[in-house]
Amino acid sequence: MKKIVFALLFVSSIMTAQDMDVVKGDFGFLKDQKEINVEFDYSKLTLLKEKLTEAQYVANRTKELNDKTKNTGDIWKKKWDSSKELIWNPKFLELMNVVFVKDSKDVNFQEGLATAKYTLIVEVLWIYPGWDAGIMKQPAKVTTQLKFVETSNKSNVVLEISSENAPGDQWGNNFSNETRIGEGFAKTAKSLAKLILKKAY
Rank of each mutant, 00 (worst) to 15 (best):
L9M: 06
F10D: 13
F10R: 13
V11G: 02
M15H: 11
A17H: 12
Q18I: 08
M20W: 01
V22K: 13
V23C: 11
K24C: 10
F29K: 15
L30I: 03
E39H: 14
K44C: 10
K51I: 00
K51F: 11
K51A: 07
E54G: 07
N60R: 07
E64G: 01
L65A: 03
T69V: 15
T69W: 03
N71L: 09
K79F: 07
W80E: 14
S83W: 06
E85S: 12
L86I: 08
L95C: 10
M96W: 00
S104P: 05
S104K: 15
K105C: 09
Q110E: 07
E111F: 03
E111A: 08
T115P: 11
T115N: 12
L120P: 06
L120H: 05
V122E: 03
E123C: 14
I127D: 12
Y128F: 15
P129V: 03
D132M: 00
A133R: 10
P139W: 07
P139N: 01
K141A: 04
K141M: 07
T143I: 04
Q145Y: 11
Q145G: 15
K147R: 10
K147Y: 01
E150Q: 12
E150M: 06
N153H: 13
N153C: 04
V157R: 00
V158F: 06
I161N: 03
E164W: 07
A166D: 08
G168H: 08
G172R: 05
N173M: 13
N177Y: 13
R180A: 02
G182C: 04
E183K: 14
E183D: 13
G184W: 14
F185N: 04
F185W: 03
A186S: 13
K187I: 07
T188H: 06
A189S: 12
L195Y: 08
K198T: 14
Y201G: 12
